[in-house]
Nucleic acid binder design. Sequence first.
DNA 1: TCTCTTCGAATTGCATACAAAACGGCGACA
DNA 2: TGTCGCCGTTTTGTATGCAATTCGAAGAGA
Lengths: 234, 234
Amino acid sequence: MAKKENETGGGRAQAVHRVLKRAILDQALSPGSKLPEDSIGERLGVSRTLVREALVRLSEEGLVELRPNRGAVVARPTLEEGRNLFLTRMALERLVVETLSGKLTQEQIGILSSHIEAEEAAKKERAQSIRLAGEFHTLLAQMTNNASLIRYVNELVARSSLILALYGRPHSSECAVSEHQELLDKLIAGKTDEAAALMAHHLDSVTTRALLPTDGDRNIKEVLSAYAVAEGLA
Amino acid sequence: MAKKENETGGGRAQAVHRVLKRAILDQALSPGSKLPEDSIGERLGVSRTLVREALVRLSEEGLVELRPNRGAVVARPTLEEGRNLFLTRMALERLVVETLSGKLTQEQIGILSSHIEAEEAAKKERAQSIRLAGEFHTLLAQMTNNASLIRYVNELVARSSLILALYGRPHSSECAVSEHQELLDKLIAGKTDEAAALMAHHLDSVTTRALLPTDGDRNIKEVLSAYAVAEGLA
DNA sequence: TCTCTTCGAATTGCATACAAAACGGCGACA
DNA sequence: TGTCGCCGTTTTGTATGCAATTCGAAGAGA
């Protein structure tokens, strides 16, 4: 058979990792939430060992903070870390743009276009909207075929949503959709500098929307139940 | 007491991580070497659990490859991955240079100068020389105070030494020392563009020294013994 | 009422045990 | 002689158990 019978691919540790990451990015687990090994393991039907491995991975990605002897929490980047992160992100996404400008295939253009449509369509759903906006950037990175670049952009985009969760205004990501379209146009036209400038502006405008809310925490087991089924866990 | 009695800081898992990382960067463990959990644990006096954690960390950093059910090996980046890696590195180190240009404090200049002296002095020792050359770049990154930038540059520099180990000419890193001095001069003078260009050239020249050797593997326990004592392990 | 101490419960750190998978050698068969 | 498949050995995957640490609440002393 061409495909493994395991529906989600990868081992169970990876599945746990994906569940938690997804939950964090959707802001179902907000920055600062505690991530106790045994509650998570219990809910997901795996032992602490696997949860631990997932947490280590997530901490390497900067999504969770591992406090020795005191457990893991969803990372709470400071505002300054946020600013620095966007600086770094800019340096890398500039490379993405330079690599891609004028070189997009018809297929890639199609993918990006329909993604932008999806973003349009999901404007209302806050969590969805945030995730899709991020995915546009990771999609671009993906197309460079540069493994390290892809990985770092992915990480930075993920962390960005933490920053936004902490310091962003409620509707901050929505206005970005049209900017994505513009950027795509410049990329297709091969106008590298304009595209880079646009990307810079795009990221910059995201950063300069500061300080706002965070709603309360929910019970972790409850929150995870939705994600668990999607990964075929317990 | 101000300091913990633990000489190396951090938990034992981190110590294992540092031992392996150091051994890899020194090319005492060359790309492709197998990293069996129990041999390592036995030699270092810890259980497989901790070794596993270290290996997961290293794989996140791209230094080891984790093959499901088949064990871990020191990563063997392809030549193309290498090229891409240096592209990414360039994008980030450009940001480092831009951030630092004209802003180095007297103290920082001192640190960098004496580091360059140390590089001069260590020209003969291949392993030392490679490590110091890398450290110059991580030192620069460190001075930006940008956490994500620091982390990525560190990772990329580390991986670069794998690339060099696989595809570099024997004496490739030595000529770099003078370039480091030049770069420092430009940075002090605040000549941002020239510094950036120099950095670009510097990294580019490293990449365009291609394809060569790798000597045989040694016994892993034997190799680790030196590193073990440095971390206070068994 | 406030602070400090003490003790129990909850949680992490780490080792170990056992199951499952991959590797390697030997022999059957062609 | 060469190849295939079987089985013991080795190594990884995962759960679990116990010790150590932290957290929190109840109580003593001021």
